[in-house]
Amino acid sequence: MAAEHFLVLLTGPLEYRPGADPDAIADAAVEFLLRAYGADRAY
Rank of each mutant, 00 (worst) to 15 (best):
L34E: 15
L14E: 05
Y37S: 15
A24M: 06
P22W: 06
A24Y: 02
M1L: 12
R41P: 02
R17G: 00
Y16Q: 07
R35S: 12
A20N: 04
F32S: 14
A26V: 11
H5D: 14
V30T: 07
P13I: 01
E15H: 12
A28S: 10
A36I: 02
A20K: 03
L33Y: 05
Y16P: 02
Y43V: 10
D40W: 05
D27E: 14
Y43C: 07
H5G: 01
A42N: 11
A26D: 05
P18M: 03
H5R: 14
E31H: 09
V8Q: 12
T11Q: 13
A26H: 06
L7M: 10
Y43G: 13
G12V: 02
A36D: 14
A36N: 11
L7V: 10
I25N: 02
D23A: 08
G19Y: 08
A36V: 08
D27K: 10
A2D: 14
T11E: 15
D27T: 09
Y43D: 13
R35I: 03
R17E: 02
R17K: 12
L10N: 01
E31R: 15
A39L: 15
Y37L: 13
G38M: 05
T11I: 05
A39V: 07
Y43R: 12
A2T: 12
L9A: 09
L9E: 07
P13M: 02
I25H: 03
Y37K: 09
R17H: 11
A20S: 13
P22V: 12
A24H: 05
G19C: 06
E15F: 14
R17A: 05
D40Q: 09
L9H: 06
E4H: 08
A36W: 13
F6R: 07
A26F: 11
F6L: 15
P13Q: 01
A28W: 01
L14D: 03
E31G: 05
V30P: 01
V8K: 15
A28P: 02
E15Q: 14
L34M: 13
G19H: 13
L10D: 01
D40M: 06
A29T: 01
V30K: 10
R35F: 01
L7K: 15
H5L: 13
L34Q: 12
L33S: 07
L7H: 11
A26I: 05
D23Y: 08
Y43F: 11
L34P: 00
D27H: 10
E31I: 05
L9K: 09
G12W: 04
D23H: 07
